[in-house]
Every structure is written in structure tokens, then in C-alpha cells.
Design a protein around this nucleic acid. Sequence first.
DNA 1: GGGTAACTTG
DNA 2: CAAGTTACCC
Lengths: 266, 266
Amino acid sequence: MRIVTWNINSVRLRIDSVIRFLEEEQPDVLCLQETKCLNDQFPAKAFAKAGYEHMAVNGQKAYHGVATVARVPLTDHQPIEFCGMGDARHIAVTLPGGARLHNFYVPAGGDEPDPEKNPKFAHKLAFMEEMTKLFSKKKKEPRIIVGDLNIAPGEHDVWSHKQLLKVVSHTPVETDAMKALIKKGGFTDVARELTTEDEKLYSWWSYRAKDWAASDRGRRLDHIWVSEPLREAALAKGPQALKIHRDVRGWEKPSDHAPVSLDIDL
Amino acid sequence: MRIVTWNINSVRLRIDSVIRFLEEEQPDVLCLQETKCLNDQFPAKAFAKAGYEHMAVNGQKAYHGVATVARVPLTDHQPIEFCGMGDARHIAVTLPGGARLHNFYVPAGGDEPDPEKNPKFAHKLAFMEEMTKLFSKKKKEPRIIVGDLNIAPGEHDVWSHKQLLKVVSHTPVETDAMKALIKKGGFTDVARELTTEDEKLYSWWSYRAKDWAASDRGRRLDHIWVSEPLREAALAKGPQALKIHRDVRGWEKPSDHAPVSLDIDL
DNA sequence: GGGTAACTTG
DNA sequence: CAAGTTACCC
């Protein structure tokens, strides 16, 4: 089973790129974030035509929005509304075999990394707390957590640890919250586990850089985690099972995020 | 000498179409309206590269804006500000041989054809009055008036005289004002003069029509007039000297106006 | 830098 | 329907 997470930054604008990616990589399940459309605007026909007939969509107007599409059946679609904000940042489904797949778009958090001054940052921290509370329960459930979590937890998940310590996405309060969530949920951060501790890993490069590839000032914001019951399966195939599709960031009119994929026997 | 007038509806967006038209039709002078850009945003390099090195530009931000570009020298560039509105709706130049070429974008006039209720319509009528005043003087000057004048004066300058009598662009107060201007300025409306009185002539088709070509609900809003000293030269070459480039309206991502061209020996 | 939306103009 | 702006968000 191949599972992909990709912040697409408007699924309607980039549907052709998405279909191309599906054709080239043949994932079984694709988890999208920042779809930026209402559910009835979601390009369901294009996915169905490409063979991805199973969809769990949680969208809203203009902002955020997640969707999980698959060529295998998805059951028990369940969007959870975190922080009671009325926004569309999560959808869970059950995969064939019983694993529960959670697709997240965690709040970006604004510019100022101070929850007192910046309600967006407070929202981000509250969101992480709710996630932690949720995943501290039923830990024997086979879980896969994917999505744009908007935090690069490790020193080598950013191009410059020093220069980003006060930049939202890599501040200690965020990275600590993420590490606590991983620990309390009993999760394995698959990408980091399958690589050496000091290998630079990025899944996002700003649009603002002149030459994103040359300057390579990236951050690893997009994650695939598994709970304890799936740990062995996730690591069994070795490093080549986890791929960050950096080339896709260089396609025409790209999203600022690259897709991340995992091959796992479920 | 071939002279063209064309409401381009954003010169930056359609610069490729403009260059294609210049290459295909080889006009000597091109008068554009609704350039919709500031002078320093005008794509001067693209024109120069195509051989049109002489430019008289009068633009503003977002709205209106006119430009006259040529592969022959243009002297005495002079924008006139009509109605003291601070908008960019006119530029005059002198052509080799001495004819004065005035390029106009007359106000559209809004929806309601009542100057009491609709200040835009009042502005349009005031603009026509100022034009009339200006061109009632120095009538021995060889003049060419071109542009989007936003009025279809004759019964056969619209697809339905009856249905457009209360529609701005063809109301009696406007068509009368235009006829008075033609008369007082001693102008020849070249397109109408070179065709039979009852031939339908259009230069604009709304974007809103499903199939603009099939329904053919057009209006002749774009004009080329000459003053008395140029009348004979303008008519000398016969009907084929005046052309409405209807095919251009069918190009990819078109303006809603077609170019209108005149061949005249100056 | 690049999405979406609401607004204004034609 | 299709330009342009501004505002918001990432």
C-alpha cells in the first residue's frame, strides 16, 4: 500500500498536476491539504476518471480544506473539528485491513511566535494539545497520521536551525509540543526514523525564494507517522519506502509543498 | 500608410496578440485604448522589438489608458485631459506628412441613460461636448480621429436599432451628440462612407454572449474619422481600404473589440 | 510569491 | 464574461 500526503495549495488550480502525479506514482491513497474549495467544488470526477473512486472530503470556502482519495475502499469517514473554529483541517478514514488514517492541516500560526500577542499562534498550540489528548487514548489502534503539520521538529528538518529558532514552525514551544505528541501517541516519525539523524530533510520551500532549488532553504512540514502496532510494517521496507518527491516542487505552477509517500504493507 | 485602432482591454495581458496582429497586418500606426496600465508598465520593449519604436503613451492605474505606437516617427505628443477628471482617455500625435492623429477612449457612460441620475452618463455627454468644442476650431487642420468612442451612431451600427434605443451607446442623445460632432468638425466617418448605408457594421461583441459570432449581436463603437482636408485621400482607395478585423475577435483570450484599420496616402 | 474572494468597471 | 484592485492568508 502506497500512501501520499501533499499540501496542494488549491486542488482546483492544480488538478492536472495531481492527476499526473497519480499516474506516475500510482499511490493507493492520496491525502491532500489546502484544497481551498467547498465539497461540491471538489474535482471528484477527475479523480474518479483516474481510478480514484473513493473520497473523503472536508472542505470550506477559500481556506484550508482536506481530502483523502483512494483507489481502495475507505470506510468510516469522520471529520473532527478541532478547537471549535468551524474550519476544515482534518478527516479520518479506515483503510482496508483496519488501519485508521488521519489527514491533518495544522494551523500555520501566523508570524509572531507569542500566544499572548498572536491568536493564530495560540490556535496552533491549542490544536496540537487537542491532537495530543486525542491520540493519548486507544493507543493500541493501528493509526497513520499524515498531513501538513506546519512544524519542522528537528534541527535537520530546517535549512538553518539557528536562524529559524524564532520563526514560527521551528520555535521550541512548537517542536516540544510535536515531540510530546509523538511520544504520548507512541508514534514513529517514519521519515526521520528511516534516515540518519543528521540528514537534511525538507518537504516545503517558500515561493518567495528566487531559486528555491539552488538556495534550498526548506523545512520538513509534511509528515507521516504510524502508531506502535504499525511501526514494524512502516520500517520493514527500508529507507526507499519513504520518498519526498522533490522534483514535483519543480513542476509548472507548483504547490510550495512536495508530496511525501510511504510504502507499507497493511 | 496603414492606421489601426483597437480597444485591447489590457495591453499587458494581450501583448502577444498585439504583436501577432502587427506582424500579420503590418500597420504603420497602432492606436490602443484601455491599456489599463501605468506608463512605466507599458510593454514598450515588446513593441520596439517588433519594429514599433515610436510611442506616445498616456496611461493610468487599472482603468482606461491610451497609447499610439508606430514604426514611423511621431511628433508633438500631447495628451488632453477632458472634463478635468484626471483620467487617461486621449493622446494626440503628428504623423509624417503633418496630419494630426487623435486617439480617444470616450467614457462608457454606465447603465442608466439619464445624466440626472447617472453621473457616468453625464460625464460621457460632457466629454462629447468638449470634443465638439475642440474640433469646431482650426478645421483646416488635417485630422484623423480614432478610438473607442463608445457610441454606435447609426441604425445599422447595432444589431437591433429598436432594442438598443434605450441602451447606453445607442440612445438618441448620444447618437445625436456624435452626429453633431461629426458635422461641426467637418469629419468623414470613413467606415460608413465606404459602405452602403444599410450594411451592418460592428467592431464590438459582448463577452457575455454564449456564441458571439453566431448570435452576432454587435455594435460599431470603434471609429476612424478624417477631417475635410483628408476626405479625398481616405476615400480614394475604395471599400477595401477600411477593414474591421472580425477574425481577431475570435482569437484565444480576445479583447471584446476587433481592430479597425484604414489605408490612406498621407 | 502565490492562492481565493469581494468589489468595481466595462 | 473578463479585466483590474484590495484584503486576507500562507
